[in-house]
Design a protein around this nucleic acid. Sequence first.
DNA 1: GGGGCTTGTGCAATCGATTGTGCAATCAGC
DNA 2: GCTGATTGCACAATCGATTGCACAAGCCCC
Lengths: 347, 347
Amino acid sequence: MPKPTQKQTIYDIAQQIGTSPSTVSAALNGTWKARRIKAETAERIIALAGQMGYSVNLQARGLRTARSGLVGLILPEHNNRFFSDLSQSFTLEARARGQIPVIIATQRDPKAEMQTVQDLLAYSIDALFVAGAAGPQQISAFCQAAELPHVFIDQPCPGASSVITDNEDGARRLTRAIIETLQPAIAPPRDRIYLIGGDGRLHVSSRRIAGFRAEIEAHFGQCDDAQVIACGYAPEMALASIRALYDQLGGLPAGIFANSINVFEALLRFLVELPEAELQSVSMGCFDYDPYGELLRVPVHMIRQRHRQLVRTAYELMDQPPEHPELVTVKPELYPAPARAARVPAQ
Amino acid sequence: MPKPTQKQTIYDIAQQIGTSPSTVSAALNGTWKARRIKAETAERIIALAGQMGYSVNLQARGLRTARSGLVGLILPEHNNRFFSDLSQSFTLEARARGQIPVIIATQRDPKAEMQTVQDLLAYSIDALFVAGAAGPQQISAFCQAAELPHVFIDQPCPGASSVITDNEDGARRLTRAIIETLQPAIAPPRDRIYLIGGDGRLHVSSRRIAGFRAEIEAHFGQCDDAQVIACGYAPEMALASIRALYDQLGGLPAGIFANSINVFEALLRFLVELPEAELQSVSMGCFDYDPYGELLRVPVHMIRQRHRQLVRTAYELMDQPPEHPELVTVKPELYPAPARAARVPAQ
DNA sequence: GGGGCTTGTGCAATCGATTGTGCAATCAGC
DNA sequence: GCTGATTGCACAATCGATTGCACAAGCCCC
């Protein structure tokens, strides 16, 4: 039980033992062998330090070594399943390496992002990970100028190493799952699968859309442009889109591919008002994961990004920086919906 | 656009301007008036610093001032709605004060908690907030010894200031809401409301249970001990409990009070397998919030802790430490279930 | 017994800021 | 023109560690 009554320094310890501060320093930070300190001396120092409740002043060390043991992670928000999963994995990974994770949410505000990067740099953080920033290029340019190692996660940034989910692969698998659970005998015009949400101009969305189209074409020979409703990520837009689609088709389509959890939530807001029987006729998939998805009365396939793997890979890119910036992809995980058979039918 | 080509120091600036480092320091950290630096000199320095892309070395400043601008928040995990809400609020509050929030998840592991506290202390953090720690007393003792200001959030710790949700009040309001949406004409033994989950030995649970009982007694004259099933927070236990209750009663009870989101999830796992009609007969409440709660086919009342308020209050306790440790409560928010009338009945 | 090697440790500079104190130069007042 | 206050700034110590280098003592070997 350490009792750090008052700040202890290596000078205090040195005095107690009757040795010099440099010897104490070496003994405590593990370089004593290299400095040829006698094992017994080192042990005595370490023992005393322990019972005095000494702990290094990391600011002093950091000042001298120009490092800090802090690693940063910038993300848009905390209260989001994916980002909190990412925070979790990042924390575990950083702690395992003896680093202190500093996770900062910047609300997708480029100004806040830059301010944060600068602040973190002022603390001499050792590395920076960036997930879902609004202004990636600016961040990357800044880090490069400051020679701060950095890697983007879940977001490709030109000129910097990035590790992202294989969105195309995920979209294909999700689409396939939706196809496999299509209810038989649904008449036109309700017999098709629609992708809702996302923004075709963004890298992430475009890959997902490509995957969706590819899989639809592979199974049905073609994919009508109308089947891709990239209305953005705003819930209101998604809600409006599904409503319009419902009216246009005279009911729900045979399948729905929700392009993100927000979109899915919006859809759900609409679906939950419908009679159960109607619900049961649709085959759904969501490109994102939430445990509640498994607890709905509608079966939903979900794609979950491998957050742990993303973080690990990002760290690897950091540890052994490639010659040129690299874009690494990680395949996501499919959480297939519980089989319909297991559910008690309505009524 | 700052371009920090290479690390700049106040010495570099001093040389460029032809002044001393101390003057530069004063000009840049705002103490120049107190040090009677000419306004023009200060401006010149500030301008040059800006165009050189200078930024203070916070480790150096921290070493000198024995502060750091870092504030810690310890919590059990990131991927939990409440804690991520808390992280969010904490980040905003800290950033607004010009501090860097350092949020660390310690998995409810007392060892990891202590290790983290020590690490943070080694960085000379200015303050520590603790939410949901497994070993609060140990943490508090350590902080006291190190004279580190600290406040507990959502968890009372003897001997330290704490700000927690008014669990009794929340439980009463939640219970009242459940009572108000009870379906008419449910025959015994299924006509009662049950609280499921939690641990009566914990402060938080005991207050909730007290609130539940009080409100039940106020409405029904008495509360049977059997109506409180404090089976812990483990999902498996909750699942087993609801199953046993279902078997015992020959159906669902009239009302269910889920004592936490985990418990609620477990219940849902059971409920989702039941026919819709049965579901519609139960009035539910959950002491925790998740947006998905609003999207279920079962109406659910939810209690949400005011995370923003908790953080603000905690900061106030930190800013103006009371003579003796104080326990402040914050009333939570009730998210009533959408009215049943708005829902299309099954079939 | 002298030269060279190894062993164990101390000295002092250094990282980049902050801050108490000292001291010219200027100014005001008589 | 002299005194005392004010203005504007520089000096140097300091925070607590790390680290290059020097150096004494002991040892080996011829």
